[in-house]
Amino acid sequence: MQTLDRPLGHSLEDTLTIAGRTFHSRLMTGTGKYRNFDEMRQSIAASGSQIVTVAVRRVQTNAPGHEGLAEALDWTQLWMLPNTAGCQTADEAIRVARLGREMAKLLGQEDNNFVKLEVIPDSKYLLPDPIGTLEAAEKLVKEGFDVLPYIHADPILAKRLEEAGCVTVMPLGSPIGSGQGLKNAANIQIIIDNARVPVVVDAGIAVPSEAAQAMEMGADALLINTAIAQAQNPVGMAQAMNLATEAGRLAYRAGRIPVKSYASASSPAAGSITG
């Protein structure tokens, strides 16, 4: 098991393990939608993130804003999470996953089998195809990939993907880039309560309070891109999301008080002054 260098502020006792690899940050970030590479690098550093996702298809085709992106980051300090963004079918996603694994190897990560699996035929709402996702996941697991599937907040699908051998499940809080927050909180909670693999809440988180809320629910990690990259001050927002992720995790581990239908005085009545 390999452990990446520990950023300041992270507890040595509370680590995130995915496919036998240990991380100290529970905030994953992306590389899309930034205004320039300098802003991207500074934001990723401020986020404390160790796992950074890269859209393989957009890098391979030199899509606008992605020219030279793979070489713009120091992959000796970050773990690449290639993703299959832009794929509309299971077959497309499988092909792009293979390209992503080769890209990671070329950049020095010889043992990187991670892939963020996205199968999204819907161009308006960018909602994942559950059937195509499960089909692709089953095939990629057989090829030795560590599959991190992006899905609806569907507890049954999450369990099926876990049984298929996926190393995480990644339910969406709300549609990608929408900033709507945790619209699917009830279903995400069911997934968290029943999963035996890490649950990563992905998509829809817009502000640090929502990041903290997801972690307080017991999510193992978050993936946040648009809320950071498109903020007025991406570096400041990245730092805020980092702190919120840590605060939410600490709160979850500390244990909240029960919700009561009546008041409970902070100070005991015994020994109070009377008369």
Rank of each mutant, 00 (worst) to 15 (best):
V147D: 10
F114P: 00
V115T: 14
L172E: 09
K105D: 01
A158M: 04
L140W: 06
A153F: 08
F114G: 01
E92T: 10
P149C: 06
R98Q: 14
G132T: 11
I120Y: 09
R101W: 12
D154R: 07
D154N: 15
D129R: 03
Q189K: 14
D129Y: 02
G108P: 02
P149I: 10
P130I: 10
I131C: 06
I94D: 03
Y125Q: 14
G181Y: 09
K142I: 02
I176L: 14
I120G: 08
P121Q: 05
A153N: 12
A186P: 00
A185C: 00
V147P: 05
K159C: 04
K105Y: 05
L161Y: 06
G181I: 02
G165H: 03
V169H: 02
I131Q: 14
G132L: 12
P175A: 05
L161N: 09
I176G: 05
I120T: 13
P155C: 10
E162C: 08
A158Q: 04
R98L: 01
A186H: 02
C87T: 10
Q109A: 07
E118G: 09
N112C: 14
Q180G: 04
K183S: 04
N112L: 12
D129I: 00
E143G: 12
I188M: 01
Q189L: 09
I188S: 00
Q109N: 07
I131F: 12
D111G: 00
D91R: 13
N112H: 11
D154P: 06
I190T: 00
S123I: 12
P171S: 09
E102N: 11
L126V: 07
A164Y: 03
R95V: 07
V115E: 06
G181F: 07
G132W: 12
E138L: 03
P155I: 07
S174A: 14
N113L: 04
K142E: 14
N187K: 00
K142W: 01
K139R: 15
I94F: 12
E118W: 07
